[in-house]
């Protein structure tokens, strides 16, 4: 079977198109590359969706935590504390069993036990909490002069937030936020190892890599392939965020533009 044929059969296997059965023996390199690559669809789906949705909640949480009003600040603080203080892996398990319990009571929660929604919600809350803390830190370090200048121009309330505070916050938070995005993508590999079932063997990249490693008892081929895919993904994320960083800082003199210094932090 030619490689092109394999790509046709398994290229979209992770989302349910193409050949029903996974290859069982005589694994070729092409099959491993194709299937693990098709699993990346899930990683990208989880990462991108959680990041886009999480951005809004994160902004709300960051602003909420910095709020002087107690009844706004406390919930935001607790949300951030709970999701940053406990392992993501346990959160996945807890989320899955929570949805399972709810499902037995109300039929409404039926889709929540599937990975595409349930795991997404957990990832969404998790990344919002981490990014919320980053935004909170950025809000604290907004130069006093900027806010005073806004006051002097007669901006207040929503206009001041929208035109001065929010852009500055993003600019300050961006390097750390990039880091968070990278690790969110790495965290997406946990989904199918934490209770959420891979329905009809539609799993993510690590699921397939693990499948091959189990079947061939040879970890030295599938895992490096997975590593390669993830390094490419990381580079793409860095360059996209770098472009946004350039746009956020476009008003600054060229030399003072902070190059996106990536200080990698780790998992949750």
């Amino acid at each position: 079977m030619s490689c092109l044929q394999t790509i046709q059969d398994y290229g979209l296997r992770a989302v349910g198109y193409g050949e029903r059965l996974l290859p069982r023996n005589d694994f070729t390199l092409c099959e491993q590359f194709t299937l693990i690559g098709s699993g990346m669809i899930w990683n990208i789906y989880f990462g991108v969706t959680a990041l886009l949705l999480g951005f809004f909640l994160a902004t709300a949480l960051g602003v909420g935590k910095a709020s002087p009003k107690r009844w706004i600040r406390k919930p935001a603080e607790w949300f951030i504390f709970i999701f940053r203080g406990s392992p993501l892996f346990i959160q996945f398990f807890f989320g899955y069993f929570l949805f399972l319990t709810l499902k037995s009571q109300y039929a409404f929660f039926d889709p929540f036990t599937a990975a595409w929604l349930g795991a997404l919600i957990v990832l969404f809350c998790n990344t919002s909490a981490y990014a919320g803390e980053i935004f909170y830190g950025a809000l604290q370090s907004i130069p006093k002069g900027d806010v005073e200048a806004a006051d002097a121009y007669g901006l207040s309330g929503w206009a001041r937030f929208r035109r001065v505070i929010w852009p500055t916050m993003l600019r300050l938070a961006w390097p750390a936020y990039t880091n968070e995005a990278i690790f969110l993508f790495h965290a997406t590999t946990l989904v199918f190892f934490s209770g959420f079932p891979a329905w009809q063997q539609r799993g993510d990249a690590l699921y397939y890599a693990n499948y091959f490693a189990d079947k061939t008892f040879n970890p030295f081929i599938p895992y490096p392939i997975l590593a390669g895919y993830f390094i490419i993904l990381t580079l793409v994320v860095i360059s996209i965020f770098g472009l946004i960083n350039g746009r956020l800082n476009r008003h600054l003199p060229q030399e003072r533009k902070s190059r996106l210094g990536l200080r990698m932090q780790i998992i949750r």
Binding site: H186, A209, N210, A213, L226, M264
Partner: peptide, 21 residues
Amino acid sequence: ALVRGVPDIAFFLFFVIALDQ
């Protein structure tokens, strides 16, 4: 650079078999 660029859980799954073998 390598360990930080790749999801750590992939390393966990990889090293256990690789070390054993």
